[in-house]
């Protein structure tokens, strides 16, 4: 898989649009979800991902052969999303509490207990401050290792580990405090 990705990157370096589209489709899903969780708005997330891919393809010759594409590209998307979020402030953002209503049209009575716990967990993640929320998103949604997360966030690996620990503790406390919270570990 990694070797295949390297072959694709070599084709991208030669300006092959088909290879660019393969990379785009491979990394789009994780990138757009990540950008959304940072910007809290789909239009901003699309802008961040679009700018991220354009920058990645334009500067692909600076990408070192043999390294995985995902952490390098994720770092670009995180920076683009943060910049767009700063640019638009709260103007485009949907409050975190509104996500649940927008994403699940079912009435509270219709939501199953599991769904309710999942919503509470998602809400708790969104209420974490960014320095604790981003490592959680990069580890669980983007499936980056702690070393890769450290590379994306320009932090030492030990800092990423401690932030992940603190974030999980806060999530647990939040869910225990919230009646019907998920606390099975």
């Amino acid at each position: 898989m990694l070797e295949n990705e390297q072959a694709i990157i070599q084709r991208v370096k030669q300006g092959d649009h088909q290879a660019m589209e393969i990379l785009f489709r491979t990394h789009l899903d994780a990138a757009i979800r990540l950008a959304y969780l940072i910007t809290r708005d789909w239009t901003s997330a699309e802008d961040a991902v679009q700018e991220g891919f354009i920058q990645a393809f334009r500067s692909i010759n600076n990408f070192k052969d043999g390294l995985p594409f995902k952490p390098w590209f994720t770092k670009i998307v995180v920076n683009k999303a943060k910049r767009i979020k700063e640019k638009f402030g709260t103007e485009r953002q949907i409050p975190a509490s509104n996500y649940l209503i927008i994403n699940d049209p079912a009435s509270p009575e219709e939501i199953s207990l599991d769904k309710e716990k999942e919503q509470a967990l998602y809400n708790a993640i969104n209420q974490l401050d960014e320095k604790h929320r981003l490592p959680i998103i990069l580890k669980y949604l983007n499936e980056l290792s702690e070393a890769e997360t450290a590379q994306v966030l320009d932090l030492p690996v030990s800092t990423v580990k401690s932030r992940l620990y603190v974030a999980r503790q806060r999530l647990k406390k939040h869910l225990i405090a919230d009646q019907g919270g998920v606390s099975n570990d």
Binding site: R33, L37, L100, E118, L121, Y122, I125, Y140, L141, L171
Partner: peptide, 10 residues
């Protein structure tokens, strides 16, 4: 559970 919560709402 964390991963599923993140995926289901994004």
């Amino acid at each position: 559970q964390i991963k599923k919560a993140l995926l289901d709402y994004t």
